[in-house]
């Protein structure tokens, strides 16, 4: 760390004087003790909502309870969460002008590794997406593995072709939220409540939403890693 050139920033944590620091420690110790007491006095036998989920699991279309909660019983959480991802990406893009550093070429190890790993990661993402219906896995895990594949590609110097950096990229980023909203709206049009799937189609609808969400989550995470908005335009 080159701290010497800016004398004001030399003391990274020395700004707060010792009496305040001691007072803070006392207050936070009290907070920790209070929180610990509250947690340790909770009843050790609380049914929670686990029984309710187990009783309604058959109507949800999947047999993994966590996926059932994420994409059926509390699917509005996931819907809004896709929105949060998009808003975060919008925020990063709106800051603009983060200088993208032109690194030197990735070197043989990273180059070969990325060529080997990226197909495997995509395969793992597909597997996690499919297996999420009845075992640990699902859209978020698959999406983050896809995002990791994207980060690896970006580290190896790969950039999205300018042809796809405009509208196609944005369509991919919004697919997850879009499919979610369309499914919810269609269900409302046919007389059900928002995202209240009919039990006979629930499995298929969940897989459709999850597939779109996986793609969008992966793309959004990779785009968040890149930081700046990919340049669109025919010439590069």
């Amino acid at each position: 760390m080159k701290k010497t050139m800016n004398p004001k920033s030399m003391t990274e944590s020395g700004k707060i004087r010792t009496p305040f620091r001691l007072l803070l420690m006392v207050l936070l110790s009290a907070l920790a003790a209070g929180l610990g007491y509250a947690v340790s006095t909770l009843s050790s036998q609380s049914p929670g909502s686990g029984e309710w989920v187990a009783a309604n699991l058959e109507t949800s279309g999947v047999s993994n309870p966590v996926t059932a909660v994420l994409l059926n019983f509390r699917s509005y959480d996931t819907l809004l969460e896709m929105g949060v991802l998009l808003v975060a990406l919008l925020g990063v893009w709106s800051l603009g002008g983060i200088p993208e550093q032109r690194e030197s070429s990735p070197g043989p190890v990273l180059d070969t590794l990325s060529r080997l790993l990226v197909p495997v990661l995509i395969l793992v993402a597909g597997y996690l997406l499919w297996v999420g219906a009845h075992a640990p896995g699902g859209a978020f895990q698959a999406g983050s593995v896809l995002g990791a594949a994207g980060v690896l590609l970006l580290l190896a110097g790969w950039r999205l072709d300018a042809r796809f950096a405009g509208l196609p990229l944005r369509i991919t980023l919004t697919t997850g939220l879009g499919v979610f909203v369309v499914v919810g709206a269609v269900l409302m049009l046919v007389g059900r409540r928002l995202l209240e799937y009919p039990p006979s189609f629930a499995g298929a609808l969940i897989l459709l939403i999850e597939a779109a969400a996986t793609l969008s989550i992966g793309m959004t995470l990779a785009a968040l890693f890149l930081g700046s908005r990919p340049e669109a335009g025919p010439d590069r």
Binding site: V66, L128, G137, Q141, S144, A148, V151, L155, F225, G227
Partner: peptide
Amino acid sequence: APDVALAEAAIGAGLTGALLLA
């Protein structure tokens, strides 16, 4: 909580670290 473990291993350890280092 194996579902959470999968998400944490991919995001908490992998992606957050890459973001921070970048």
